[in-house]
């Protein structure tokens, strides 16, 4: 019989029932950070372009999507997406209840939180083509294959690789 180790890392997905405004996203991320135990975290949602991407108004600036700065754990970065989903890996199971409580404190509406497997473990062809051999396996699953190299954020207690910017 195999007994699972209670120190094994767990992966969690948080899906709020609404898209978050930057203020709420900042509050939630800080609460999550305060809970501790984060190995890696990814924020996900629809893109917020800086200018109209196509159509007759192509190139017109979208001021509302510019300068959406948030500060998490003393580190400021610019949001490029409307936060709609957060995936993270925790060091162990013991941080899960605290994470749920953190979401309840930060979010004024309902949300779903679930455990599962959300980050892939082997590099995809795209990963290999864009980044070559990856030294740190924690980057896997944090990279948007369609995004440019600089559009990546890794917020962790230990700062890990690649450019420390938004996704």
């Amino acid at each position: 019989m195999v007994t699972e180790s209670d120190t094994e890392s767990i992966q969690v997905e948080i899906v709020p029932s609404r898209f978050l405004m930057p203020v709420t996203a900042q509050k939630l991320l800080n609460e999550i950070y305060g809970n501790g135990g984060i190995i890696r975290i990814m924020i996900h949602g629809p893109n917020l372009p800086r200018s109209v991407p196509y159509g007759p108004g192509r190139g017109a600036p979208i001021e509302e999507n510019r300068g959406l700065l948030i500060e998490v754990a003393g580190q400021a970065f610019e949001l490029c997406v409307k936060v709609g989903r957060i995936r993270l890996e925790l060091e162990s199971d013991k941080y899960f209840d605290g994470l749920k409580a953190a979401c309840e404190r930060a979010l004024p509406f309902t949300f779903q939180i679930r455990r599962g497997k959300f980050f892939h473990t082997k590099p995809t062809i795209t990963d290999y083509a864009k980044y070559g051999k990856m030294g740190d396996a924690r980057i896997l699953g944090l990279i948007d294959p369609k995004a440019k190299n600089d559009r990546l954020a890794i917020l962790s207690e230990e700062r890990v690789t690649i450019t420390d910017e938004e996704r």
Partner: peptide, 23 residues
């Protein structure tokens, strides 16, 4: 929305508005 129409099947924003990439 004449272009960049997506939003109909996405969650609403916090203030109850339909999400619009172009605001």
């Amino acid at each position: 929305r004449g272009c960049t129409v997506h939003g109909h099947s996405l969650r609403l924003e916090e203030n109850g508005m339909q999400f619009d990439m172009l605001s």
